Amino acid sequence: MAVVCVLALAFVLLLPLTQSRGEAGADLGGQRTTQGIQAKAAKCQESTVQDQSPPPSDADGTTINAIKQRGYLNVGVDQNSYRWGYLNPNSSGELEGFDIDLVHAIAKNIFGSSYSPSKVHLLAIPTDQRIPAIQKKRVDMVVRTMTINCERAGKVAFSAPYFVTGQQVLAPKVSTITGYNDTLARKRVCSAATSIANTRLHADKGHKIPATVDILEPVPNQLDCLVELQLGQADAVVTDGALAASQAAQDPTVELKGAPFTTEYYGVAMNKSATDLVQRVNRILETYRTSTGPDGWHASYTKWLLPTLRADSTSADPPTPHYK
C-alpha cells in the first residue's frame, strides 16, 4: 500500500507547474536591526562559504525595480518534497511547505502594500535545473532546499543561510544498514543528480564508505529515490536529513539510519548580478528568523517540520548569519 500511495503522490507532484500559489508571508518591511556578524572576505572554503553573502540592505536596485515593474516575482521551487514544497492532494492543491512560506515572506516585503499571492509565480524545477534556471534568468531566485557550497557559490549568489541540516542515510527499517559506514558494503545507494549527496558518495567511496558501494545513476528528483527504495531497486538513500525525515513520514517502513555526517546550510539562490536582491533577501531573513509571530521562521518550522524533525533537532533553530 505504501508503494502505491507514494507512486500516486509522485505522479501528482511531478506534473508541470508555473502559477501563483500559497498564503501571504509576514510583512517584514521597516525592520532595520542587523542581527548578523561581519566576516572578512576570503578564498572560498567549504567550512565558511555560508558566511560570504553581502550585508543586508533595504535599498531598491536594478533587479528589484525590474521585478516591481514586471509585477510579479518568479521563483524556482520544489513540488515533490513533502513539507518543504509539495502539492497537497488532500487540500485545495496549493503548493505548501516551509520553503513556500519563505517565498511569500520575501514577496510581501518586496511588493509591500500591493502584495497579493498572485504576485508570486512559482516554477517547479528538478534538482539538477536549479542553477541553470538562475543563470538563464528563468527565475529571480530559487528557494528549494539548496545547500550552499563553493562550487555553487561560483555560479550563483546565495543569501545568508536560513536552515541548517546534514547528510544522512535513509533505508528500510528491516535493513542491516546502520548509517554512513561499512554497513553500506555491496549496497545500492540512490541520490539526486547534482546533489551534495551524490558528490559525497563518489568522493567517499573507498575511504569513508566501502569501495563495494554501488552508487546508482542519480535521479532528477529526490522523491524518485524513495520510489526506487520502495520498489526494491535501491537499498538506501543518501540525502539531507531534513528531507529524509520528511520521506520517512511518507512511508513508515523506512527510517533514518545513523547520525548526520555533514553540516550544511540552505540558502536562497539568485543570479550573480542581482546584488540588490541578495541584500534585500538578507534583510528579510533577519526579521523572519527572529519573528515570534504566526508568519515567522519558528511558526513555519512548527507547522511543517516539527512533526518529523522534533523540537530537539539541531535544525530546530535558524542559523546565525555572518556576512562578508
Rank of each mutant, 00 (worst) to 15 (best):
Q230G: 12
L229K: 12
L73H: 03
V219D: 02
Q230S: 12
K272P: 02
A197Y: 02
G154R: 14
G29W: 07
A153W: 01
E96W: 00
A2T: 15
S191R: 07
T183W: 04
K324R: 07
E286P: 03
D224K: 10
Q79C: 13
A59F: 03
A249T: 11
V174N: 15
A274C: 01
V254S: 11
E217P: 06
L243S: 07
F261E: 05
D224M: 14
L229I: 11
L123R: 02
R283T: 09
V238W: 08
G206I: 08
L201C: 09
A133V: 05
S53K: 10
S300D: 07
D317H: 09
I125F: 01
A245L: 10
H322T: 07
P252K: 15
S20A: 15
A203C: 02
L201Q: 02
G29A: 14
V12P: 01
T263H: 12
Y162T: 05
D251R: 13
L170R: 05
S300A: 15
A311V: 13
E255Q: 15
L201H: 06
K205Y: 00
L231V: 10
G36Q: 06
K108F: 04
D58M: 06
A26M: 11
A234E: 01
A249I: 11
D251K: 13
T302C: 10
W297Q: 07
C225A: 14
Y266P: 03
E255C: 12
Q69R: 12
W297T: 08
H202C: 00
Q222C: 08
R152Y: 05
A211Y: 06
A157K: 01
L305Q: 10
N221A: 09
I37P: 04
L223I: 13
N282K: 11
N109C: 10
A42I: 00
V139I: 14
T263N: 12
Q38K: 08
I177Q: 10
T194K: 14
R289F: 01
Y265K: 00
G29M: 10
T127R: 10
F111S: 09
P172R: 15
T63D: 03
V213R: 10
S195K: 09
A157W: 05
A59L: 09
R70P: 02
T262V: 00
E255G: 14
K272G: 07
Q19M: 14
P220D: 12
D140W: 05
A192S: 13
K40D: 05
P172N: 13
V143G: 09
D140M: 05
K187W: 07
P318M: 06
V143W: 01
D295T: 15
R280M: 02
T199V: 13
K303G: 04
A211D: 13
S20D: 11
D27P: 03
K40A: 13
R152P: 03
K137Q: 07
I106H: 08
S91Y: 11
I64Y: 02
Q230Y: 11
S313I: 11
A171V: 12
N282A: 10
H207I: 08
K257D: 05
V278G: 00
A269D: 04
P294C: 13
F158V: 05
R83L: 08
G76T: 03
N88I: 12
T48S: 14
L201G: 05
G179Y: 07
V142I: 14
N65A: 11
D78T: 14
L256F: 04
T302Y: 02
A211R: 08
